[in-house]
Simulated scan of single mutants.
Amino acid sequence: MSGPLLKVESLVKHYPLGAGILTKNIPVVRAVEDVSFFVEAGETLCIVGESGCGKSTVARLLMRLTDPTGGRVLIDGTDIASLRKHELRAWRRRMQMVFQDPYSSLNPRLTAGQIITEPVENFERLSRKQRNALAADLLQKVGMSPEMMHRLPSELSGGQRQRLGIARALALKPSLVILDEAVSALDVSVQAQILNLLMDLQQQLGIAFVFISHDLGVVEHVGHRVAVMYLGRIVEVAPCEALFAKPVHPYTEALIAAAPVPDPTRVRLEAPVEGEVPSPVNPPGGCAFHPRCPLAVERCRVEVPPLVQIAHGRAAACHVRAPAIDIPTQPTVACDSSIASPGEANELIPALERPVIARPIT
């Protein structure tokens, strides 16, 4: 089928803080507000942002682990957000998830082999020989010995548990895998092994990844495109190299400026932003970033900036930086499905300089 594998349109999720038939104007947590993006087959889209910006909520909505308040989640053109439970069951094979905690997401009473084969047995009967063969094959694909299929999660290291979680996600041969902070709990050396494993598996199997992380170093290593979230909204979408070479939104600049520098001879400058993230219960009017933005103007305080296309494959939601361009088709989609090269994207953004984020020690 032509078109993106995953397409999200105007996704919204509100959590009410109270209940009762006599209660009026119940306050709500605006966890996700008008989020739109797409993912092509075999592509990695990274979603980044501070803690509490709504990244994990988006992941749960994509997997239909929680129901959206509004919007659509389309897999190959089918809106899974509107499917009933018995209709959704067949689509579970197309999408799987790797959770942040590699221990609490695994059943401690099942062996590694049982954990891998359990999803498959929900859909089809397997003999003992088939189960062992499937578990051994997937363990080898994620760099583990087949003999480990008889071990419990408590007998595995953190990196081995995360590999086991990846093997379980691959058991149903999905087209899309959601990775929610999949390497944040691991040591740096183990992180590198898991990331290289994911990239190899994507090249071999053609899987699309939605990679959720707050670590920009990891994102720069694995991503094809990046969507930056702030207080429940996407504020910028761009090809990975173009985003890091020349960020458009002031919040993206702040994230890059706050990232640590691995070179000990250089010092990272302070991020050019102050203050704390506003409450999602009572977000500020207009652009949610304007109380912390050094470029904010009066329009930012009263009008929510739309996510508009600013170059081929790039979009941003900023009254100051992003010119208002009428997009002829599907304005709710983050940007065109074709991905521009970083050089092409950078040339099309006028008068934007990359922020100075590091300086040598003197």
Rank of each mutant, 00 (worst) to 15 (best):
H312K: 13
L172T: 05
A245R: 15
R321A: 14
E50P: 00
P331A: 14
L170N: 04
E9Q: 07
D263I: 13
I80Q: 04
Y230V: 08
V58T: 02
M95R: 12
D263Q: 08
K85V: 12
K55S: 03
A171F: 15
G158Y: 14
M97V: 04
L152G: 10
V120Y: 10
R299N: 08
L110S: 02
P284G: 00
I361R: 05
R92Q: 09
R93Q: 07
I310W: 08
I178W: 07
P272A: 05
P305M: 14
P328I: 01
N25K: 13
A81F: 03
I325F: 11
P283F: 05
I47H: 03
S279V: 06
I26D: 01
C240Q: 14
R60H: 10
R128I: 05
K129A: 13
G217T: 05
V320D: 10
P360R: 15
R225P: 11
G343F: 01
E33N: 13
P291H: 07
A259V: 10
V98M: 02
A238H: 09
P153Q: 07
R292K: 02
Q204T: 04
N25S: 10
A31N: 10
I116S: 09
N132S: 13
L295H: 08
P239L: 08
C300G: 02
V39I: 11
F99E: 11
P153D: 06
F289V: 10
N132M: 08
G159P: 00
P294E: 11
Q191D: 05
L170A: 06
K55I: 01
A81L: 12
P260T: 15
T332L: 04
I310E: 03
Q202D: 02
S104M: 10
I21G: 10
I212N: 07
N282G: 01
F289A: 14
T332N: 07
L6Y: 15
N346L: 08
V188P: 06
D101P: 00
P284W: 01
P119S: 07
K55N: 04
Y15V: 00
F38C: 02
R131F: 04
D263R: 08
L139H: 03
R128W: 02
V248Q: 03
